[in-house]
């Protein structure tokens, strides 16, 4: 065999072998191409080489549902939130609009910067907590329960006013210990399966956990419309689910631990556009 013929044979074998390996190696659905869709981290010590929204880890079909506001079922919550915005509730006879007028103006950017430090409480609060602070203190209304349709709808509506704006949270000053706590929790293993957030979402994103295609676990789309649940899911419920699934005892929604974790997650997504209401599977 001439060297040229041998080379051709090797190349041909490699192509056929590669095709067989691809066909044989993956029995699941075709994987989304998330590479190259990330943004650059703010500095070189950042824990991720690029910051990629969960949007890019989902199929084209799922992306298409999110891309079309008329098709995105998450918009039911946006509409419900809009109605609640101007509906008076509580002893003070006020609605959100009584103080904040038009949400499109007054709430623009608010959701992109939460959780935020509240000096009066000496702790940071997230959007759900701030909404309930307004309800109890300004409106003299009952706080909405975590996970209630009302609280999730209002959270979605307020965060939606920041859609497209980059996530940017303060982690300095009094927020610093909360950031450190969140970072520690992110890297702490839980449960009988002994897995941390980082085990899947830092070390193994872009790989398949059986049928689940692992993303970076970014929070920029929350509350998200989850196709398997057929409803909007707030961030703390999703974190609860992850810890439960590794057979661990989850922290309570709106606990200090989940708040610290929410802060740290937001920082890991620094610069990602808010996508609320995002669609995920």
């Amino acid at each position: 065999m001439s060297p040229r013929l041998a080379l051709c044979a090797i190349v041909l074998l490699a192509i056929v072998g590669g095709a067989v390996a691809i066909a044989w190696g993956r029995s699941g659905p075709e994987r989304p191409h998330w590479e190259g869709h990330g943004i650059k981290p703010p500095d070189k010590d950042f824990p991720l080489p690029e910051i990629v929204s969960g949007y890019w880890f989902r199929t084209k079909e799922t992306q298409a549902i999110q891309d079309d506001d008329f098709n995105n079922p998450g918009f039911f919550a946006v509409e419900q939130g809009e109605e609640l915005w101007s509906k008076p509730d509580g002893a003070a006879g006020k609605s959100c609009a009584s103080c904040h007028q038009d949400a499109a103006t007054s709430m623009k950017g608010v959701g992109a910067a939460m959780p935020k430090w509240r000096e009066a409480l000496h702790k940071p609060v997230n959007l759900e907590q701030q909404i309930n602070i307004c309800r109890t203190e300004r409106m003299q209304a009952e706080p909405w329960k975590f996970g209630s349709a009302e609280l999730t709808a209002m959270t979605t509506y307020v965060r939606f006013q920041s859609r497209g704006m980059p996530v940017r949270v303060r982690i300095d000053g009094p927020m610093a210990p909360w950031f450190e706590r969140g970072k520690q929790l992110y890297h702490t293993r839980n449960g009988q399966l002994d897995l941390a957030c980082a085990s899947c979402h830092e070390k193994n994103y872009g790989r398949n956990l059986r049928a689940d295609f692992l993303s970076q676990g970014q929070s920029n789309g929350f509350p998200v419309y989850r196709l398997r649940d057929q409803r909007l899911v707030p961030l703390h419920e999703r974190m609860e689910g992850c810890i439960f699934d590794v057979r661990g005892i989850p922290y309570a929604p709106l606990s200090d631990e989940f708040l610290a974790l929410e802060l740290y997650l937001a920082w890991r997504g620094t610069g990602l556009p808010v996508e609320t209401p995002a669609v995920r599977n």
Binding site: R189, Q192, L193, D194, N204, F244, G248, I249
Partner: peptide, 23 residues
């Protein structure tokens, strides 16, 4: 990241129904 399938110690916040039981 691989779990230990026959171990009950040194784990954190294990759900009560799995405490003391290996996978």
């Amino acid at each position: 990241v691989m779990p230990a399938f026959y171990r009950v110690d040194g784990l954190n916040r294990v759900r009560p129904e799995f405490v003391g039981k290996p996978i």
